[in-house]
Design a protein around this nucleic acid. Structure first.
Length: 214
DNA sequence: CACCAGGCAAGTA
DNA sequence: TACTTGCATGGT
C-alpha cells in the first residue's frame, strides 16, 4: 500500500531529522532568486551569492530589474554558471513585470496550475525551479521532485530510476494529502536524507533512518 | 587530485 | 523522442 508507505517514510524522516525550516529566505523574491541560483549548485554557494546581493541592496524587484546583467553576474559569482543565471534572473523579472505588473502579491493570487505553466514558459525555469517557486515562495500545494527523490525512491524500489519528473510528482501528489506544510517538509527531508546518506560517493546506507524500508 | 552539487537549454541524430 | 554537452564556482 503506497499511501501508507509514503506516510511511514515521512514519519521516520521527520522523527530522525526534525523540522527542516525550508525555504531559507526572508522574502518571496529571495526565495525565487535562490530557486534559480541553486540549479545544480550546492546551497552554501547560493548563500554567498544571496549575501552579496543583500549587501549591495539588490534583493528588491526595482533595484534588481535596473541592475545590468554583468553586475548581477558579478554578485552571484559564487553560485557558478553566473552568466547564464544572471540571464535567467532577468527573464524571471521580465516575466513578473509583464504578466503581473511587477507585483508578487498579485502573482500570489494566481491559480497554481496556470502559474506553473507560465513559469515553465520562462527560459531558464524548468520543472524543479517552477515547483520550488510555487511551493516555497507562494505556498501552493505542489510537490517538488529532485535528483535525490528519484534516486532514493528507486533504491526503495518504489520507482524506476529513469521515471519522468511528472510521474514522480504524480506519485506523491496522488498518494498524500495535498497539504502545503507536508509537501514543504517532505521534500526538505528527502534532500537532507540524500545529502547525509545517499550521496554518490558516500552511501552510508547502513545508518540510514529508513534502512528497513529497502 | 577527481568528483559533484536542491537543473536547464540547445544541439544532434 | 532520446542522448549529449555547456555552463562554472567551491566543498569534500
Amino acid at each position: 500500500m503506497i499511501k501508507k508507505r509514503l506516510s511511514r517514510i515521512y514519519k521516520k524522516l521527520y522523527s530522525s531529522f526534525g523540522k527542516q525550516r525550508w525555504w531559507p529566505g526572508d522574502t518571496k523574491l529571495e526565495v525565487i532568486i535562490g530557486a534559480v541560483l541553486t540549479q545544480n549548485t550546492a546551497w552554501p554557494n547560493v548563500e554567498k551569492s544571496i549575501s552579496n546581493l543583500k549587501k549591495a541592496g539588490k534583493i528588491s524587484f526595482k533595484k534588481l530589474s535596473k541592475e545590468r546583467m554583468s553586475g548581477i553576474a558579478r554578485l552571484i559569482k559564487p553560485a557558478g554558471y553566473f552568466n547564464i543565471k544572471a540571464k535567467r534572473l532577468k527573464n524571471v523579472l521580465r516575466f513578473i513585470a509583464e504578466s503581473y505588473n511587477s507585483s508578487l502579491s498579485l502573482m500570489q493570487k494566481a491559480d497554481g496550475a496556470s502559474l506553473r505553466e507560465e513559469l515553465l514558459g520562462i527560459n531558464g525555469v524548468g520543472p524543479e525551479t517552477a515547483d520550488s517557486i510555487l511551493l516555497y515562495a507562494f505556498g501552493k500545494p505542489i510537490f517538488v521532485i529532485d535528483s535525490y527523490t528519484t534516486r532514493i525512491l528507486s533504491r526503495l524500489k518504489i520507482l524506476s530510476q529513469d521515471v519522468s519528473y511528472e510521474d514522480a510528482q504524480k506519485l506523491f501528489m496522488d498518494n498524500l494529502p495535498k497539504d502545503v506544510r507536508l509537501f514543504n517538509e517532505y521534500h526538505a527531508l528527502i534532500v537532507k536524507l540524500g545529502k547525509d546518506y545517499c550521496r554518490k560517493n558516500n552511501p552510508r546506507c547502513q545508518e540510514c533512518p529508513i534502512r528497513d524500508e529497502h
